[in-house]
Design a protein around this nucleic acid. Structure first.
Lengths: 217, 217, 217, 217
DNA sequence: TATGAATGAGGCTTCATTCAT
DNA sequence: GATGAATGAAGCCTCATTCAT
């Protein structure tokens, strides 16, 4: 989805210098995506990446300062693909229903881009800069959505700071669930319905539901 | 808390062969806990661990098959310490209140055993076997608690499978929150109150609250 | 002094092909002088030199066979600048006084062209061909001076071969002294007076002084 | 001379752990001496040194922190061998004669330990720490000798500071001469007599000779 | 002639593991 | 059981040089 990978058949012969340059960088980037998705960051040596890309090891350093720089670009890039993907299928229903849609779309995206899961999960330790960038991207967008829902009356009683915490909980929850349920023996599979339903209940009542009567002040 | 470290003053001279053996193994284990807590799994080389333990590198392999085996034992061990710690301060209030207590106790434990955070967070990628073991330990215990709450009428409308999903969401949320809020510049700090309050609202309404009226069938 | 660097404002637009060619070569040469002077031969990569010169790496090989060829041209070129510089301020005093002047002028030159010191000192190992060329240039000129002094009666009792040895001693002494005294914390500074006076005594007595009476036959 | 190289036939089997350790370190050290002597510091890669020593590359790092550390030990070590060598053949003649002896012994040492020349000459740029250490060793000892000669009345009219400068001139002169005359096509040869005689005249008159009458005040 | 991406050999260093003492 | 030196594979990166445009 999102973009045709650089490795698709392309008339290479026709490219000028600038294009060839971009094309090579793209080859390396795509190769890294594949390699990290398959083996994890730790096993994503420059040798492996360049071999997958079909270029010499030295070529790598014409396009990236060092190995880490590339690794740190991986997640933000794919993360933005994900944001677009989810946005495209959120629809216009009420806020609660939209959030459920988003939750589902997240898991759909994982199936579309199976590399994403590892790239996301391991990033915290192997690509911390990219991870932080991604987190900022996501949580900013997410908090904005929540504030709109609050403004529209769909959410009561949560402050902005609490939104931020909630967003982190959601991201954490998704991560855990995806790891637990989506990795069936290597391949990525659909998330069971009971996971969706559990999330739905928790969210609709907990976030979008009415203020709890018997809650202490 | 939990257990006196092996490095406490002990009459080494008086130990018999079996005890000396256990004592050495314990020294290595404790050293690994410290090293991983401070530097992470990736930097926890056998050389560093044995140096911290004050034994020779070769000694390591008299007690552990290989490096990975030790790393995989770290989390399950400390994880059980955590379970005990949390259980001890859960109290006997109503189910919802207990869950809030547990949430708080989790963050208290992190402050008591600062190594825990890294050992837990990185385990998924550096000690996957130990991580799985830990997850099983925790989720089993957690689901049992929820089932009891349901049986006592505090939770309605969640199936066993949904409980398992909920538990993963909780664990994921805690993990994210701890990473986001507990690591202030290296030291481990308290979690802000708005995080607690957001969690409380989400849980009490979402999990322990009444069935939502206007929810679709 | 010596020559205007190529980077001075020049009407590039007006140059014909031959001139443009020479101009580019000169830019590279000057850049190499700067780079070697600042970082030493070892750090003077083609990439660094061409960057300093503001041309592409490939351009380098249109003007020099390879990196070494350029490096080997550096010292002989600046060395000749030095010879002219020293000759210009030697004056017409008696031979001994002239030699002292030369000694001082050497250190003056170092201050005028601060790159010279590194280019000279490291050349022996990084640009041996250029070094040899420089040595030949210098010692030929120097020996000629001595022979003239002997012919004028200012020096007694030294053969031509001994002159050559003496010249090498002088060059070695200057090199050592310049390294020891001229490089004060990075910048090039003046040589202390006691160095000058020591040299003066050694030379005036040893070389230009009378034959020693109590010397064995 | 000096010490039997580690590679001499030795009953390796009989060595205990400590001795084996020292023996291995010595093998590496000696190999480095040979390699640097033959190819220079720049070509003295760890791979080459360990191959020459007959050990694995990793072994190197059990004995030296890194490549540079070893390189910086080379010169001071051999330099001290040289000092002993020269001292042993200086004799008890008068100060001037002793200095001539020292000059000759220096060149004898070069013939005994042909690696010395390159190790010394290149050290300034490739092993600056070792070079400085060596310089300090030598000049301290040398200045002490001169002060004794002055005290004994053999030298007049030189201050301590001037001695230091003189010593540097001597060292520089020897270096230059050795490079010029001792390296005949790769092999190390004897220094021609005219070099010795030139030095002798310069020194006996310049340093040990009487105060020059017609010298300006 | 100028360009600058591509190449690939080679350098230094780390580290889990083995094994003789 | 304890020791710690030895091993060698593997990783990251640099850089002179080539060559198609």
């Amino acid at each position: 989805m999102t973009q045709a990978p650089a490795t698709a058949a392309v008339k290479v012969a026709k490219l000028n210098r600038v294009e060839r340059n971009a094309w090579t960088k793209r080859k390396i980037f795509d190769a890294a995506t594949k390699v990290v998705g398959r083996f994890g960051y730790a096993e994503a040596s420059v040798a492996r990446i360049t071999e997958e890309a079909g270029v010499a090891q030295g070529t790598f350093y014409n396009h990236f300062e060092n190995r880490q720089e590339l690794l740190d670009q991986l997640l933000p890039k794919i993360g933005m693909d994900m944001v677009r993907f989810i946005r495209d299928r959120t629809g216009t229903a009420d806020a609660a229903r939209q959030e459920i849609k988003r939750f589902g779309a997240f898991f759909d995206f994982i199936r579309e881009v199976p590399e994403f899961l590892r790239i996301l999960n391991e990033a915290e330790f192997f690509a911390p800069i990219g991870y932080q960038k991604h987190l900022d991207n996501i949580s900013t967008a997410y908090v904005r959505i929540m504030r709109r829902a609050r403004h529209a009356g769909a959410i009561e009683d949560f402050s902005d700071e609490e939104f931020e915490a909630i967003v982190h909980m959601f991201m954490g929850a998704r991560g855990y669930l995806s790891r637990r349920y989506s990795y069936a023996n290597g391949a990525v599979t659909a998330v069971p319905v009971h996971v969706i339903s559990a999330y739905e209940k928790l969210i609709t009542r907990g976030l979008f539901g009415p203020r709890n009567e018997n809650q202490q002040p």
